[in-house]
Nucleic acid binder design. Sequence first.
DNA 1: ACAAACCTACGAATATTTTCGTAAATAAAA
DNA 2: TTTTATTTACGAAAATATTCGTAGGTTTGT
Lengths: 129, 129
Amino acid sequence: MTEQIKPTDSELEILNILWDKGPSTVREVHEVLEQSKDAGYTTTLKLMQIMHEKTLLKRDVSNKSHVYTANVSQEKTQGQLVKRMIDNVFNGSASQLVMQALGNNKASSQELEEIRKYLENIHPNPKGS
Amino acid sequence: MTEQIKPTDSELEILNILWDKGPSTVREVHEVLEQSKDAGYTTTLKLMQIMHEKTLLKRDVSNKSHVYTANVSQEKTQGQLVKRMIDNVFNGSASQLVMQALGNNKASSQELEEIRKYLENIHPNPKGS
DNA sequence: ACAAACCTACGAATATTTTCGTAAATAAAA
DNA sequence: TTTTATTTACGAAAATATTCGTAGGTTTGT
């Protein structure tokens, strides 16, 4: 069994920023975070330190301002979160999750088109709709 | 804005049982729960009482053993959880979630077929571009 | 050199979630 | 009736997650 990645909501926010920006200092992460929520600087610092202890983040201590990097891939993390949702919320049915994600205008028509193409690749439609 | 349904993991387990079995007593829920985890009876009771306070559950007190029912629909709850995942994990892209859910053999070929049919039936509302 | 700004580490307060022991009431069994 | 089992209510412990103040060190600006 591969290790379970289970970031909390706050941790996920930080991972998102690091996946987006790449290696960053606490200050850099905090400045992005501030735009959407209000938390003190040391709160962000503490969170990232904890994430480092959990090995969710790597860090480079050679400079005064430590530089943190995500130590789990976005793909793999997304995969585990989706799998968990399929199991816990959709009783193991991936298709039910997909349909829920496609309903209610959650996806634009452009996105729907993307998905159609993707589907044809992994499961070509013999009739060619 | 509609009320936010945000069940915890434990609460979701209970909701799943109630959605599946319909109105049930604490004992009935607990017996199902026991099969997959080990927790004491009063733990289940307390959880369901809290869920009732939060109005996640309704209850009928006319008998000695109270009968609980889910007070949120499975559809709506699933929808909100999926939307939250799209926002927090996939930066708002439903298609990315879908592709993640379809990759890595998370869906059987039968499921893929279901999804393909579902997609053909969708009449996309052109709001995104 | 001195002060101001910045950074980390640490500990602890808060908040939330999960767990369960115990007491009181009711029902069932003996 | 007396005992045993079942159920609720309550409170609080335990576990986890989030927040922040403060101290001490380093760098930067004057």
